[in-house]
Design a protein around this nucleic acid. Structure first.
Length: 195
DNA sequence: CATGGGATTGACT
DNA sequence: GTCAATCCCATGC
């Protein structure tokens, strides 16, 4: 298996756009970390202007990363159990990011199955905490660059399937529940399931 | 400094 | 359907 994908890594210009556009644009792209990865099929947008975003109260120690340069990885720890991965968007100084919520596993599947301790493909990366476990993405990668580091997101292949993108309210939040800022690829089995 | 909650998941009733 | 796990960090005194 090759270590690198043929498709180019998304650059800072891709991320330096309105966060909702970036969230839609990331559907179909491939997230890779050291030989493991998959195609992004579910995302959510967060922006400092709305109260569900960690950046809503300004650049606190945790939220500081959200204000970093576009294409920075924002990784934080949730429920004392899971790391969650976001891609920082919008120009430098604006607090906004896209939460990566689900992948179709494509690379290093055996390794990911081992890390997850389960044998069902469908459960490998079908949630924000699952995919970080499968790809071994931890807090050490917070503030790392997605545009030229071990963690990277690649453009879709030219012959990749074109997904129909559906938008819904975001999952698991108690503020700004009305905004339809969750995006997923319609009909894909690896999208996170409603509880 | 003490306290409370959370962009979740898996196990169990 | 219900609940515990488990820790970072935001908030308030």
């Amino acid at each position: 298996m090759s270590l690198k994908l043929a498709e180019p890594v998304l650059n800072a210009d891709f991320y330096a756009r309105p966060v909702v556009d970036v969230a839609r644009g990331l559907i179909g792209c491939t997230l890779m970390h050291r030989g493991t990865g998959g195609v992004i099929v579910e995302t959510e947008a967060y922006h400092q202007s709305e109260s569900a975003c960690h950046a809503f109260r300004g650049p606190t120690p945790r939220a500081r990363t959200l204000f970093a340069a576009p294409g920075t990885a924002y990784v934080y720890f949730s429920y004392g159990v899971h790391s969650l991965l976001n891609a920082v968007a919008e120009p430098d100084g604006v607090g906004a990011a896209v939460l990566i919520r689900a992948l179709v596993p494509t690379h290093g599947i055996n390794e990911m199955l081992q890390r997850r301790g389960r044998d069902r493909h469908r459960d490998l990366c079908s949630g924000p905490g699952k995919l970080t476990q499968a790809l071994a993405i931890g807090l050490d990668l917070n503030e790392s660059v997605l545009t030229g580091g071990p963690l990277a997101i690649h453009e879709p292949a030219a012959d990749a399937a074109r997904y129909e993108i559906v938008s819904t309210p975001r999952i698991g939040i108690s503020n700004a529940v009305d905004l339809p800022w969750r995006f997923y690829a319609e009909g894909v089995e690896h999208v996170s399931r409603a509880r």
